[in-house]
Nucleic acid binder design. Structure first.
Lengths: 129, 129
DNA sequence: GTAATTGCAAAGTATTTGCCCGTTT
DNA sequence: AAACGGGCAAATACTTTGCAATTAC
């Protein structure tokens, strides 16, 4: 666990946003000015291997990362790109994975539900977040 | 609707796979050898605007496209990258979007559930699809 | 001391754009 | 001739990789 790797994990754990590699780069550069984007990407790959972070595909152009690794839902604004966590017990109950495994023969690792819509702020104003 | 645009839509409608732009390019090139990847991308953008195709983010490196535009689930193999449709009435029932709208203030467009796991084939063999 | 990890620069992919030409109305 | 769409090539992301120097254990 290098200083850089720790910073990536801590930064990710301290935010409720779902930062891109570039977001992390900008944030961590304030503490470790010499860090590079390549290091961010390499550490994200390692942390992903270790199961400490997951990728979140929310439709934007670049991949977002999340230190909450359990299966959970996201809601994202198709206008400004905001990505938020969603605590949902409505769908995707605990037995779903098992049912899907039985129906498909897959060995499941996790599942994600993403809701796409327009956030309250974008419904009123015209902004780019 | 040019010949090229029609080909993109038809090809997408005739497959159960979830092709990338490059996949479509390879397929359509057999009928229209002069077509370019830029044309594929431009037409996918137009068809998306028209609501005739949707993007599917299944974790792979490139975006996949789907002519089934209603909210539906996908199951994807984290080893070989296969993406399949999943007919699920288990979760994501009809009332879910409304509940989420009420809880979040978002105006929802659609939602997608993606299951990530290892497909039956990859569980036995070691292949790259 | 050895193996892991970094920074830097360069290379890879994936996707988008500018420009000009041909087709359709 | 105006509008639309296409092909080509160049430009933009975003992400990954090779290499030599540095750091962690």
């Amino acid at each position: 666990m290098s200083r850089q790797r720790t910073a990536v994990l801590q930064t990710l754990r301290q935010t409720t946003k779902h930062p891109t590699a570039a977001d992390l780069f900008d944030a961590i550069r304030e503490q470790i000015p010499s860090i590079t984007l390549a290091t961010i990407y390499r550490n994200l790959a390692v942390l992903k291997e270790l199961g400490l972070v997951i990728e979140v595909d929310a439709g934007g152009t670049s991949t977002r990362y999340d230190a909450t690794t359990q299966s959970h839902s996201h809601i994202t604004c198709i206008k400004c790109g905001l990505v938020e966590d969603l605590d949902l017990d409505l769908d995707t109950g605990n037995g779903v994975d098992v049912s899907v495994e039985e129906a498909t023969g897959y060995k499941l690792v996790e599942h994600t539900t993403t809701f796409h819509g327009i956030c309250p702020r974008c419904q009123s104003e015209s902004n780019t977040n």
